[in-house]
């Protein structure tokens, strides 16, 4: 999947759109010597029209009102305004919100591969009410993968975030094992040893997942089925493995509106501050962080 290109759906092949982009004509370097003649000479009319036709005219809701025409209870109202109102409260409780924001995935460890997904996408797949009815599927062909790789491609984060991210991924691996008969799962993280030290015996109870303390070096799409070949380094040597689905662990971030609210109330918080079901309560007795 092409991660977080929320615009992804706009990119569609229209047979009648010329795909070649137009080049701006220029005068030669020779002609530019010792004078200030304009270098770029401009598009000719037909070139400009062709170039303009390449525009995808990105748009979401069309504003066609077909839904409005079909809605029996007449609930749709295009003129329903935004609402602003003031509240006065005795207490404010900040939580990290309902969607987990993530930091952009740096580098290319599979972000541009068809059969690489994020841990958040896997979570949505695993939900019974989700798009895939609780099945883990490959975005390229909808098949259930028999060999899954989980990979942490970022390093050097707060220990609490590292533990949360790895716990989240490992839980997904556990559910995947239950759901897919005979699935092989490898879990590659440069922090695996450190995590094992803090998670202790809980991790030892997890069976059927190959935990590897290693770092992904590169990943490539292979073959017609677009499996993903991952090269990783572990214990001083380089290994290669091919996965039908690659799950990239993502770095959670605090939604900006929550961070901003916290700042206005006089504290600086990050995502780690909300881990372990923590909340920040602001009441008459001042701010306090709470953990269940």
């Amino acid at each position: 999947m092409y991660f977080y290109e929320k615009k992804g759906r706009y990119i569609i092949d229209f047979a009648d759109i010329p795909s070649e982009p137009a080049e701006m004509p220029e005068i030669s370097v020779q002609e530019r010597k010792h004078n200030f003649k304009e270098v770029e000479t401009g598009f000719a009319g037909e070139v400009a029209v062709r170039e303009a036709k390449r525009c995808l005219s990105c748009r979401r809701c069309l504003g066609c009102a077909l839904c409005w025409a079909e809605c029996k209870p007449e609930a749709i109202n295009f003129n329903l305004p935004d609402q602003d109102f003031d509240l006065e409260v005795d207490k404010v409780i900040l939580t990290s919100g309902m969607q987990r924001n993530i930091a952009p995935i740096a580098g290319n460890f599979g972000n541009r591969h068809m059969n690489a997904v994020t841990d958040l996408q896997v979570e949505r797949m695993l939900a019974d009410t989700g798009p895939s009815t609780g099945l883990i599927i490959r975005p390229q062909d909808g098949e259930i993968p028999k060999k899954i790789g989980f990979a942490q491609t970022f390093g050097a984060v707060d220990d609490r975030i590292r533990d949360a991210v790895l716990t989240f991924g490992i839980n997904e691996a556990i559910i995947a094992r239950k759901k897919i008969n005979g699935v092989e799962i490898s879990f590659i993280s440069p922090d695996m040893d450190a995590f094992r030290a803090s998670a202790g015996s809980d991790l030892d109870k997890v069976s059927g997942v190959d935990f590897i303390n290693g770092s992904v070096v590169e990943s490539t799409e292979v073959g017609e089925n677009k499996h993903i070949q991952v090269k990783y380094e572990t214990g001083g040597s380089e290994k290669t493995d091919v996965f039908e689905l690659l799950v990239l662990l993502t770095l959670p971030q605090l939604p900006s509106h929550i961070a901003e609210a916290a700042r206005q109330l006089g504290i600086e918080v990050d995502y780690a501050g909300f881990l372990g079901n923590s909340l920040f309560k602001f009441g008459p007795e001042g701010v306090k962080s709470e953990t269940d």
């Binding site: 569609i12 229209f14 005219s57 809701c61 069309l62 504003g63 066609c64 009102a65 295009f78």
Partner: peptide, 21 residues
Amino acid sequence: NKYGEVFTEHEFNRTLSWIII
């Protein structure tokens, strides 16, 4: 449209081709 956005012919055709596909 319902939001008062006036379409160019090109925009309309793009949208329509998309719906046809």
